[in-house]
Design a protein around this nucleic acid. Structure first.
Lengths: 252, 252
DNA sequence: CGTCGGATTGAAGATACTCAACATGAGTGG
DNA sequence: CCACTCATGTTGAGTATCTTCAATCCGACG
């Protein structure tokens, strides 16, 4: 079966049989399972292997000296936690599992071999890191120029799209195991204000946010509320997000 | 003479004579000069060559439909505007020159050859994009968890450090050709509030901000005011920022 | 049944925004 | 040389958004 990384990268490239097999084989490596709340990688750490999320949900977070925390990104299946190890000396933030999360550990050497062997893969991975950067930029725009409601809607919508990229989130919502406190740390507000903002989105009939799960009731409305601009995700081969209510099946 | 890209990358790697020569030779390519305010690359555009800033000052900016603008990053000599062209279909934001700015245009093919030829360079460039991401993340932290004064101080300090990485900014401040409107767009405030925040930093004796030029009067104070955390820049070979008042000369 | 983490509500206060006026300086045309 | 415009910077006053500090509620779990 196709691993979620393959699925994600296929948004961008069409792989040969050999490349695809090689990529899928990554999931065969030994895995490590992390419990809810467990730290996958902590600031300063430099692991000997690269962590690929196979299933579950994790996030990048940074805690400042005064205790305030900022959530930087969400990691869903198919995301690499730390390709940075290739070149940087250590993590500059933490990665924490928000539900039972399984990672494949890819030895650095193995990854290096893979990259030198298949230049298509190198490009695909590069694409992946570039779109990650684009997501970071879009979040800066959000924090700088969007109000609380728009920011929260934007996060919900972005995660929805990303789930759909790996062929999930079509049914009744998707796994989004955050507390309102976490949500506040992601959007840069206080938990109180996050609560009220959430209530607003609920009352507008856009989303339902039960603990651990988000259900998008009105995707178009949510997109509008977020003032979402689609182009930054650089989806080459997909329908983009014109039809989010649509079929997950034909992404593969 | 060494081009600013070489200088920057040497923060991370030590190059062989051949590699260094090859890298320096990039500056020999045809250049293009942009006037103040001129758009170097605009959203949606996909140029046939990669733009490397040789001298001047530019920024990445994104204008939303409602006219509000967010400045995403500053580009100083040694920065690449659009390595993304390798893998993405086009720019998702604009790049604008803020003073007379000279770019080398490196044909994509040439860059590809360079990368396949010298794996050290590939790594070094990878390091560069990774640190760029780290800067983006730090800005998210800023927008989310720092107040106006801290945000502005942070931007000033970050640019100071980055200038020092390329061996500049030691004397009486550095080129920072922004209006208060631009500063507001970078920090996510209104120009009025940017003005007042700036006045505060001035009255505290931390900086002087004449038009087009920033002078840091009290680097340590500024760092403190920004609640700056040094590690995210991943400076391997330099003194980091322990001694910002110090000597630019021995960076090379 | 009590405790505990999360969610929710209220009210007061701070930070940052809006709107509007005014100052300053560079550049332009009469 | 002066009047004019225009972009930038500055200041004031009123307002909105978001925060702080409480208190309360609720369901899960021992």
């Amino acid at each position: 079966m196709s691993n979620p990384l393959t699925m994600k990268l296929e948004q961008f490239t069409r792989f040969s049989i050999a490349e695809r097999a090689r990529l899928d084989a990554l999931a065969a490596h030994p895995t490590q399972t992390f419990a809810t709340g467990q730290v996958i990688l902590s600031e300063g750490q430099k692991a000997g292997s690269i962590h690929l999320v196979l299933s579950g949900f994790a996030l990048r977070s940074k805690t400042l000296q005064d205790g305030s925390r900022q959530i930087l990104a969400f990691l869903i299946p198919g995301d690499l936690c730390d390709i940075e190890v290739f070149v940087l000396q250590g993590m500059d933030h933490d990665i924490v599992a928000m539900e039972r999360t399984i990672c494949t550990l890819i030895p650095i050497g193995e990854m290096e071999r893979l990259l030198s062997e298949y230049s298509t893969l190198t490009r695909a991975l590069w694409w992946s890191t570039m779109t990650d950067s684009a997501v970071l930029r879009s979040r800066i725009i959000g924090q700088g120029r969007r109000d609380a409601r728009e920011r929260m809607a934007h996060i919900f919508y972005e995660v929805l799209i990303r789930y759909r990229m790996i062929g999930q989130g079509a049914g009744d919502g998707y796994s989004f195991p955050l507390t309102q406190q976490d949500l506040a740390d992601a959007t840069g507000m206080t938990p109180i204000h996050a609560n009220r903002t959430l209530q607003q989105l609920r009352s507008e009939g856009l989303v339902e946010f039960a603990i651990g799960r988000l259900r998008v009731l009105d995707a178009d409305g949510l997109k509008q509320a977020a003032r979402f601009e689609s182009n930054y995700l650089h989806l080459d081969r997909t329908e983009r997000d014109a039809d989010v209510s649509g079929r997950a099946g034909d992404l593969a």
